[in-house]
Nucleic acid binder design. Sequence first.
DNA 1: TATTGAATATGTAATTAATACATAAAGCTT
DNA 2: AAGCTTTATGTATTAATTACATATTCAATA
Lengths: 254, 254
Amino acid sequence: MDYKKQLVEFFKDVDERCILGLSIDCVIFGFYDNQLKVLLLRWKESDEWGLPGGFIYKKESVDVAAQRILEERTGIKELFLQQFHTFGKDVRYNRVEISRKLNWPDNSTRLWPDRTVSIGYFALVDVSKVTPTADFLTDEYQWLDVEKLPPLLFDHNHIIEVALKTLRVQLSWQPVGYNLLPEKFTMPELQRLYETILNRSLDPRNFSKKMRALGIIERLEEQRKGGAFKSPYLFRFDKEKYKKALKEGHLAFS
Amino acid sequence: MDYKKQLVEFFKDVDERCILGLSIDCVIFGFYDNQLKVLLLRWKESDEWGLPGGFIYKKESVDVAAQRILEERTGIKELFLQQFHTFGKDVRYNRVEISRKLNWPDNSTRLWPDRTVSIGYFALVDVSKVTPTADFLTDEYQWLDVEKLPPLLFDHNHIIEVALKTLRVQLSWQPVGYNLLPEKFTMPELQRLYETILNRSLDPRNFSKKMRALGIIERLEEQRKGGAFKSPYLFRFDKEKYKKALKEGHLAFS
DNA sequence: TATTGAATATGTAATTAATACATAAAGCTT
DNA sequence: AAGCTTTATGTATTAATTACATATTCAATA
């Protein structure tokens, strides 16, 4: 059975097992090469990219569904995952246009509901711990720079924008980094993460002072060698204190 | 035709005109008697209270539906309205329990979907400008103190808690008051609004200093007479500057 | 092995914001 | 006129934020 026939079966199956007209879209952020990246999937037999997403089983909480979808796509369980907005415009896609873009038969989206409301979640993950896996509809993944995204399927560019905005606001009163950086990292790496998310440069003396004052990281004796310059110290998050700061929220990068 | 028969018609009609399995719940905050109030509706032929809510027409944006529902319930168009969370637990109500509580015939909720996901919006309104109107399912409204709520239908107590938490967080970086107070208000009134939302007392000298420094209110020459004490000055929000502050977010009640 | 270039580590002074705190003034009542 | 109640207001202290420059280390290479 070829892909196009499987598609019909796939959507029939979704209709049977899942809630209709409601989906989840996941904005999975990662950080490397000093850039904030987002995980995107290329849809089969097309050049179109979109966010990982999925549907909610009939007897499954939405939060659980989001977690499941993320685990399916990234292979990791423990991650920062947060619902940030529900996208409910009456027209979020045009079935004819989608069929064309995806090179699907004309009537293949016939079984889709007239509209779909999508609940957006964003996740922060350590790229090195992730093994992205495409789903049935897609066959390639890529981490793309959030600042240089091509036009995506559906309203996914907009969804990413809102996620990013939420992340920026959150950064001003909660710590970020535990889920985005490897276990050990240098102060400049942490600073570049903040600079990337906030999209502006910070003073290294003030940044270091503030971060260390928060009491959520500890400096190790270890240094990272390798560059033709002074070796930076390595740091590590104190998981307990980090979690506490997440809850209480006492940062202020204004 | 009596109410119980109409009920069946009502839900049939909803099924035909609206998206299934998705609803909107509105937490409408108001402020008077120095207390933060929330608008609640009593369901017909019962003593059970719940949030105003409704369903989304098949070709209607979720935001528009929320606005429509609020307008139907309060009669006012221009209000602060914000989506704050989507509630998607797999079990949010028990149909048998609901039937019993509402004194409905046993099978009256038979046509309800197995579960409903609800999108939560909160609104801030000037109580004096509102003419609350009950809907088909309800026949009485009341403004109840958010701190003294009885057990409500469904997960509405939880929804209000989340709304209140959101409002508190928001207060720390955005102004509040334009939609909750009458056009002219005194500084102590504004302070009590803040104290009520934050649930703690503030120093009047510091509060006044800070508020006036924000540049979003102007003091009028007018004073309010009437009490056996020094007449307070009246203030008014500068709508433009208030809107700007809303967008930019520069407050900090920490 | 001495030199150079690149990135890191660090401290202090100045400014701004937040907090703590008490008294005089005005309006109504009696 | 006295008394009660609520409002209006300023200053000193502390804490937080900002601005700013130089010495260090490592690797490459001359």
